[in-house]
Design a binder for these strands. Structure first.
Lengths: 172, 172
DNA sequence: GCCCATTTGTTTAATCTTCAAGGACAGGAC
DNA sequence: GTCCTGTCCTTGAAGATTAAACAAATGGGC
């Protein structure tokens, strides 16, 4: 099977990927998979949590009072509230995050980074940064770094929040 | 907390990320997350399986006799044998893949793409390609596409198979 | 006050991934 | 042949993610 390529496009055939596009796409899949895996393993080993969970602690650490409403945290981290609920349950069990009721909205909950969580973050951060450097920035020229940033912003822009119009091409 | 940035590096501080590097890294995380999520949803909706499983079917479809030894398939798809075992079990239950014993190595198993699996692939491919186009190639200039390919190859190269020397910088 | 749609966050079950362990066979040393 | 080590693949349990359903509270319209 030719997967996504096509020698010549005939009438209303899907627009397959060229050989070059396919090469790029596979490189993309391969690299992003390896890198995410690499980060996950590093953090699992050095901090005892997956990359996404680490990201949650970072968001909390950057917030005033080291606290954020669940929904806000979910939005910042771009994950669903459901996933966040599970994640915070786990982080709470580890003593790295604490929940607090919201005074003025009785439905609300704050996720609060504990001192212990802060400590874990402090210990893990250097290794994490070093890993990012090693795997990414040290290998790219300044131009490539710049280009990577631009490209990633374009991609993200096209897939934004609710993907409104993503499959409504006439609205684009 | 400043996460990964640092105004000025003092003695043997970890080499934090500059504001610009941090911006790029976050764009990368955001974009790759959104895109993978986007592909997963598209395939789950249109083909009833996650992106990784789809990739397995593709690898099989591209192989002679539409079959591959488990270990080979795992290596091609860059996943662990364990993960592959579970995945094939699921695909087998769906009737898209069949297992066959290896004649000359009684430990061995082939994963074989069934006609039904081939059919699923055939039906899903156009939508999948269109999604990739929409989300990625249609938004990038030819130069950006080229650059993306180069960058991704560099990243993958640095994280190759066993990552030998990944945290042994003196061997690099 | 009373409704009702919406928001907030959790819960359940199903699915997927990872990790550690293990069974079966292969291939070479002896 | 026996023993040993390594390879091939599976298994089971624990962790993580998703989707759908849900209770509680809010906030507006009336």
């Amino acid at each position: 099977m030719e997967y996504m390529t096509k020698a010549a496009a005939s009438t209303d055939e899907p627009q397959w990927l060229t050989a070059e596009e396919q090469r790029i796409w596979r490189s993309y899949l391969h690299a992003t998979y390896l890198l995410e895996d690499h980060m996950d393993r590093q953090l699992q080993r050095d901090a005892g949590m997956p990359h996404v969970y680490y990201g949650l602690l970072v968001k909390l650490a950057e917030s005033p009072q080291r606290r954020l409403r669940m929904t806000e945290l979910a939005m910042h981290a771009k994950i669903t509230r459901s996933r966040l609920s599970h994640a915070v349950a786990r982080l709470e069990k580890n003593g790295w995050v604490r929940r607090e009721d919201c005074t003025w909205d009785k439905r609300g909950q704050f996720a609060v980074l504990t001192d212990q969580g802060m400590e874990v973050l402090r210990n893990a951060a250097p290794g994490h940064v070093a890993t990012v450097r090693n795997a990414l920035f040290d290998r790219l020229t300044p131009e490539q770094q710049k280009s990577l940033g631009e490209i990633m912003e374009i991609i993200a822009e096209g897939l934004q929040p609710d993907e409104a119009g993503a499959d409504l091409p006439w609205l684009r």
